[in-house]
Design a protein around this nucleic acid. Structure first.
Length: 1100
RNA sequence: GUGCGAUUAGCUCAGCUGGCUAGAGCACCUGCUUGACUUGCAGGGGGUCACAGGUUCGAAUCCUGUAUCGCCCACCA
């Protein structure tokens, strides 16, 4: 074994071993209780950052712990297509300004390529962290199965009236050319001029001068007090509050010099209804006065304002309220590209910023300004992805109606989505850790408005709605997966049925899948099975044939297709097999592959005449599916049949609606908010909706076995974006909370708690520190010393500290190996539950005092660690392990075992320590498991230690020994004795004489003594340093400095006297004696007695 | 402005429902090339628990107020 642990040489290999073992793959037919976590899918936009690393560390600890505790664990990996974010990154990557520069298809291709690259990087990095993920179940938010889930819930919500399309005020990102939800906005302080405009007699304030170019109401408060004043030859109307505040008046109306003469005071309602015409920067416009008691704050500005119904959320609301009066005031002044429309007169075509300046300039020239405040600070919404200003706009969009009542099909009760989301937490179905986030959660939901889910981007799930030429809306009848995978066995074309099996060999699983498929198909009118001659297809076909009693027709030509270059490629998220094959440089062109799909279709399309046909092939099936998905053969394939008209069809969109003869349906061009698909994350990777419906009650179903999941662990910053919406959809779609616990970690910051940022240069790349310190050290530093919801400070000092710990463990392993030189196999469990400390010496049993002490301590610590982990106190668990291993096992037990070795027991104990530590440090523990124990099975397959071994007597005695040794060491250090020099010690042990005699050898070794003399009573030597420990007097043969010794003893006496005084004070307090718990009072008395005894001993 | 949270050793933080002399890691000081480990060993110094009140036999812990910091939400004319 090397002197220091070499993480770089071992970690990758260990991970490969785990993967190869197959143990990472969860078994959905297992009888063990399930434990499920859906990994928050990282965006395919970049690489792993420390936030991901923290997430992986925390979740991996839970997963490994639960696995060792006997659960069937499933931790599903996946990635997120991150709609807007990815589009922006890809645009930057391609160096183009707008996606419109490419065709939709080409742009999507670029996105897919980009996503694929990033996906591969991220997956590699997750493995570096040691995450025990079930890669056989890896999913992607934008793959076929997830598309079906998205479409399914969309359809359900739509049919329940909970999704609506409507023209509403939305946040429009000019840069991203898309709508954003309320939560996607960021705010920025800007200093811009604030103008007071003349509008007839009225004065109104605004920052947005460019919007003051149309007919408009002047809004006043009906009960508000206004003044009409004379200024030189003109009259003005504004709030009395402003008029009375001379200082503000001078400041705000700084273009109007001289006195204002009060003509009359009047109420807003007296002004209402007035109509007049007045000049704006874009020409003469009509105005009228509208009174509204809600929107006007008399203390602000002039107490009057004009509005832009199309470009301000509040004004839009006002327009809804005063529909009759304002219905003709929906003027669009800004278009979707952020340019001024014809309404703006001279400013037409200008960008908003430019028009703002220009319009003010024109107004200034025309004398329309009454005041200007150049240092006005206001906050503007910024697009969180494209960093440009967000404009409120009215636009047709799709919304999830969170406040609309509907009948919950699971409970039969009338409810709303909002209520479902709140109830999950309020009724205790979902715990938030830390609990304080519950308040924030409720607050957010209370303020939740309808969720705008449509986005005007390309990279995302296209809205599953088709329009006919008359504008009628159609949704697909039903969509299900075509192929069998993880128990998703459903075939559903009404004539041609395609089935495929993923496994390379027809394994038990593949066999089962084939059976499932047969089961699912048994009630259908299948008259023929067509199979390729490929061995696997034949095996599958045989299973189906036996089950269904139908003959197989083998088509030799299909062999060519099945054995094409596609063989050996895997389904990869976001990319079709065809493209993958081309990318991998197999020499085939996309066209050639498509031609192959075409050929498959040619061979098969005429076989449908007599009833349903089941096609069994591997790549035959995928070739068709991919080609159809790409839209290349879709038209012919589908149009040839039954007049189905489709745009952008895919084979998995199976049960199509029928359009009227000859009519063309067009799918909605928009895509869905990325959080819409993410909201299904606890369900869709488990096969919802197909599994949930198709195989209820049957085994081998991920959804049944693993849903609902257990813990959702993520950063608290996406509590609203994501967690709340998962709860909403989970409750709605399944009637269950998608998880029972939400663990929220904080943001990783630098070691001083400052945000990591590129500009500050304080960022840490997880890969760098893994390389430098090892993944175990990085994991520990992200987990220990942190608490949920709070920032996770991290610096190289901290990681280095845990690297040292990992190395300490390694060296403990070396020591164990040196003590157990032979290649003896690991012996049977040693100090197990039924072994008692009195059992005596035997293989692996505790015999010495130190053995019993450490066994007892281990038992306590292991229990504590389990308790902590059950309660998600991962930091405390890690801390307990750290200190047990270092301070107790290494510093005391290993040292003690040098005096009284018990190698077999040491090795057993060390094995338990490895198991205990494994969830936190999987690599080093696995490595030592192999190295020290020569184990072939993985450590994670062992049981988590739960040992009931308590020996309080041994603990008590050993603690006394520890104090004795420590005090002797200190006395030596104080006397500046060379550590190598051995000294003599006399102990007057009193009643402890028997047990002290037993440990004398141990004390001699640990305290570097030449001799230790123990007797019940020893006469005090003439000149010796005296220590008082418990009831024992200890005399050290050290150079005796009478003065120093005297001072030391006096000092100790003072401390004791103080403590005695405090204890006596407490005991003489009547209230304390009466009200404090009895045990506490007893303890105090005991302490007082001990202190008194010690003081007496010192004084002798 | 609203809400949430924080303030404990030089730094970063533990300290759960009040109860031993308030802890850890790093940093610091002294001494050690002890045959698992210098990524180490032994020993040590360092805190009026932000401040002011209150409840209590007893407060770092509970309550009220003040100050400072962080975050969230909202801020319209």
């Amino acid at each position: 074994m090397d002197k220091a642990y070499n993480h770089n040489g071992t970690e990758d290999g260990l991970y490969a071993d785990w993967e190869a073992s197959g143990a990472m793959c969860a078994d959905n037919s297992s009888d063990k209780p399930p434990f499920t976590i859906a990994l928050p899918p990282p965006n395919v936009t970049g690489q792993l950052h420390l936030g991901h690393a923290a997430m992986l560390s925390i979740e991996d600890v839970l997963i490994r712990y639960k696995k060792m505790k006997g659960h069937e664990v499933l931790w599903i990996p996946g990635t997120d297509h991150a709609a807007i974010a990815t589009e922006n990154v890809v645009l930057k990557h391609l160096g183009i300004a707008s996606r419109e520069e490419l065709s939709r298809e080409d742009f999507m291709k670029e996105c897919r390529k980009f996503a694929q690259e990033k996906h591969d990087t991220i997956v590699g990095q997750m493995k570096k962290m040691g995450a025990w993920l079930d890669w056989s179940r890896e999913v992607y938010t934008f793959d076929e199965a997830r598309n079906i889930a998205v479409n399914k819930i969309f359809k359900d919500l739509y049919e329940d009236g909970l999704i609506e399309r409507g023209h509403r005020m939305i946040h429009w990102s000019v840069g991203a050319q898309s709508v954003l939800s309320d939560d996607e906005l960021e705010w920025e302080d800007r200093t811009e001029p604030f103008y007071i405009l003349r509008c007839g007699e009225f004065l109104v304030g605004t920052v947005r001068s460019e919007t003051k170019c149309s007919d408009s109401p002047v809004v006043v408060h009906p009960e508000g007090k206004y003044v009409r004043v004379k200024h030189q030859e003109e009259t003005f109307i504004f709030s009395k509050n402003l008029f009375d505040d001379k200082e503000r008046l001078a400041k705000e109306l700084n273009f109007l010099e001289g006195e204002f003469e009060l003509l009359e005071t009047l109420k807003g309602k007296d002004l209402a209804g007035q109509e007049f015409e007045y000049d704006t920067y874009a020409g003469k416009r009509k105005f009228f006065v509208l009174a509204d008691e809600e929107v006007i704050d008399m203390d602000k500005g002039t107490g009057a304002m004009t509005i832009s119904v199309c470009h301000s959320a509040d004004d839009y609301l006002l327009a809804q309220k005063h529909k009759a009066k304002l219905k003709d005031h929906f003027f669009e002044k800004i278009d979707m590209h952020g340019k001024m429309t014809a309404q703006a007169g001279a400013c037409e075509g200008m960008a908003v910023d430019e028009a703002r300046k220009k319009s003010a300039e024109i107004m200034r020239e025309k004398g329309l300004l009454a005041g200007e405040d150049k240092s006005y600070i206001h906050r503007v919404p910024i697009c969180y992805r494209s960093d440009c200003v967000v404009e409120p706009m009215i636009s047709p969009q799709w919304f999830v109606m969170v406040e609309k009542e509907f009948t919950d099909k699971w409970t039969g009760e009338t409810t709303t989505l909002k209520k479902l989301t709140t109830d999950a937490v309020r009724e205790g179905g979902v715990d938030l850790i830390p609990k304080r986030f519950e308040k924030t959660y409720f607050h957010w939901i209370d303020n939740l408005r309808d969720w705008c889910i449509s986005r005007q981007i390309w990279w995302g799930h296209q809205i599953p709605v088709w329009y006919d030429e008359a504008g009628g809306i159609h949704l697909p009848k039903e969509q299900k997966l075509l192929f069998a995978r993880h128990g998703e066995s459903e075939a559903n074309r009404d004539k041609v049925v395609a089935g495929g099996v993923m496994d390379a060999k027809l394994t038990d699983k593949g066999h089962q899948q084939a059976k499932d498929l047969a089961e699912a198909l048994k009630d259908r009118n299948i008259t023929k099975i067509i199979a390729s001659p490929m061995k696997r297809a034949q095996q599958t076909a045989q299973v189906l044939s036996d089950a269904l009693g139908i003959e197989i027709e083998t088509i030799a030509e299909l062999k060519e297709i099945d054995y094409g270059e596609l063989t050996g490629t895997k389904m990869v998220p976001g990319i079709s097999n065809l493209e993958l094959a081309v990318q991998k440089g197999t020499g085939e062109t996309l066209e050639a592959l498509e031609a192959r799909a075409q050929k498959a279709w040619e061979l098969l399309k005429n076989k449908e005449s007599e009833g349903e046909v089941l096609i069994v092939g591997h790549n035959t099936f995928y070739s068709i599916m991919d080609a159809v998905r790409r839209g290349k053969v879709a038209k012919e394939l589908l149009l040839a049949r039954k007049n189905w008209h489709l745009e952008n069809a895919g084979l998995w969109e199976t049960s199509f609606f029928k359009a009227p003869e000859g009519e063309v349906l067009r799918q909605d061009k928009d895509t869905l908010d990325t959080w819409f698909s993410s909201a299904l994350w606890p369900m869709s990777p488990l096969g919802w909706p197909s599994c949930a419906e198709a195989s209820a009650g049957k085994p081998n179903n991920d959804f049944e076995k693993f849903y609902p999941s257990d813990v959702l662990e993520t950063g608290w910053d996406i509590l609203f974006f994501w967690v709340a919406r998962m709860i909403m959809f989970g409750r709605y779609a399944t009637g269950k909370n998608p998880f029972h616990t939400t663990y929220l970690h904080g943001m990783v910051t630098d070691e001083h708690g400052k945000k990591m940022s590129k500009s500050k240069g304080n960022g840490i790349n997880p890969l760098d520190v893994i390389e430098k310190f090892g993944a175990d050290a990085v994991r520990l530093s992200l987990v220990i010393g942190t608490s949920p919801g709070n920032p996770i400070p991290l610096g190289e000092h901290k990681i280095g500290g845990y690297r040292n710990f990992v190395n300490k463990l390694w060296n403990a392993g070396r020591f164990v190996t040196m003590q157990n030189p032979s290649d003896q196999p690991p012996s049977a469990p040693a100090f197990s539950e039924d072994s008692s400390p009195r059992k005596g010496e035997s293989e692996g049993e505790p015999s010495s005092l130190a053995d019993k002490w450490i066994a007892s301590r281990f038992s306590t610590v292991a229990k504590k660690v389990s308790d902590y982990l059950e309660n998600y106190q991962i930091s405390a668990a890690g801390d307990a392990i750290y200190h047990f291993v270092w301070d107790e096992f290494c510093d005391w037990y290993i040292e003690a075992s040098k005096a009284e070795p018990n190698p077999a027991f040491l090795k057993q104990l060390f094995g338990y320590i490895l198991k205990l530590t494994h969830p936190l440090c999987p690599f080093i523990t696995e490595s030592l498991w192999k190295e020290v124990f020569g184990a072939e099975d993985l450590l994670i397959l062992e049981d988590y230690p739960a040992i009931d071994f308590s020996d309080s007597e041994a603990e008590e005695v050993f603690e006394k020994v520890q104090i004795l040794i420590t005090k002797i060491r200190k006395a030596r250090a104080d006397a500046k004795i060379n550590p190598k020099e051995k000294i003599k010690v006399l102990v007057s042990a009193g009643k402890d004489v028997l047990c002290m005699e037993k440990v004398s050898h141990l004390v001699c070794v640990l305290a570097q003594l030449s001799a230790l003399e123990i007797a019940e009573k020893i006469e005090a030597p003439e000149k010796a340093v005296k220590l008082v420990i418990g009831g024992m007097d200890v005399y050290l043969d050290l150079p005796f400095d009478e003065k120093a010794e005297h001072e030391r003893i006096e000092k100790e006496k003072v401390v004791l006297a103080k403590s005695i005084q405090a204890l006596e004070g407490r005991l003489s307090n009547q209230g304390y004696l009466e009200k404090a718990p009895e045990s506490l009072v007893e303890q105090t008395k005991k302490e007082l007695a001990e202190a008194q005894e010690k003081l007496d001993n010192l004084s002798r």
